[in-house]
């Protein structure tokens, strides 16, 4: 059973078919890329899958503990708790919170703190804080953020902010992580570091990754399978080599205004 199964998913905004009859699946441990020209409906598809926008029709199923669970009619926080985390195209950090607080906030659903123990600072509170502090330190270390842990997220350079956002998504302990244009606005060195980081998401954190990206060299290097979206429809899918030779894809990219 695939980790994520999307069947005939559609979203209409007024008269516009933003996403139309999309079928896709993501297997456990895979790295799948979603590409397509601007306005093809990639982010809308992410929003449909993560509960931000409700689809007009179709189904989305996530495999949780071996059982299929429908993601429809679930709020974004419920989808996140089920194990689907995401980053955003325009970085959305908790700007005035420190990097450590950003990460810890994303762990909220992973532990519980008793109210009385919290407000009276009983030992149980310190025990929980130590536990979460440990998780946080490990994650900060793994993402090379220890040095900036106590800085406000808003004051970090762009590349670091991207890294914090990915770390924050990992902090929710997901099975599947969606990255929305993580390399946008990055210089070649930053992109190279990001490529290594995404590979580590799979090797170290055993995450399944779905990626929206315009940087084709990054996509071709990382992705095992690619879905190509145009005008809300999947016009092709396959391995990077197959996609590179696909006539429909070449037309979509070269015909309707060059991109990528």
């Amino acid at each position: 059973m695939p980790l994520l199964t999307v069947t005939a998913l559609s979203k209409r905004f007024g008269g516009l078919n933003a996403v139309e009859a999309v079928d896709m699946h993501v297997d456990e441990g895979e790295l799948v890329a979603l590409i397509g020209p601007n306005g093809a409906g990639k982010t809308t598809l992410f929003n449909l899958l993560t509960g931000v926008t409700a689809p007009t029709s179709g189904s989305v199923t996530l495999t949780v503990d071996g059982k299929p669970v429908s993601l429809l009619n679930r709020a974004p926080y419920q989808v996140a708790k089920l194990g689907l985390a995401r980053t955003f195209q325009n970085i959305r950090l908790f700007a005035r919170l420190t990097v450590r607080e950003n990460i810890q906030a994303a762990m909220t659903h992973r532990y519980h703190e008793n109210f009385l123990a919290t407000v009276l600072r009983l030992p149980a509170y310190y025990k929980k804080e130590a536990l979460v502090g440990g998780w946080t330190d490990a994650l900060l270390e793994a993402f090379d953020l220890t040095a900036v842990a106590d800085l406000a997220a808003a004051n970090l350079p762009y590349g670091t902010q991207r890294r914090v956002e990915i770390a924050r998504a990992v902090a929710t302990q997901p099975k599947l992580i969606f990255l929305d244009e993580p390399a946008a606005g990055m210089n070649p060195e930053e992109t190279a570091a990001l490529t290594a980081l995404i590979q580590r998401l799979r090797s170290e954190f055993h995450l399944t990754v779905v990626l929206i990206e315009h940087d084709m060299s990054l996509v071709m290097k990382l992705a095992e399978r690619i879905y190509v979206l145009e005008h809300g429809k999947v016009i092709a899918h396959g391995t990077p080599t197959e996609i590179q030779q696909n006539q429909a894809v070449i037309t979509a990219y070269l015909g309707g205004g060059v991109h990528a």
Binding site: P76, Y77, T108, A169, A171
Partner: peptide, 15 residues
């Protein structure tokens, strides 16, 4: 505080 800073991101983080 996460909700105060960015409700959409907080929700995506399971809050």
């Amino acid at each position: 505080q996460a909700i105060r800073e960015d409700e959409i991101a907080a929700e995506a983080s399971g809050i």
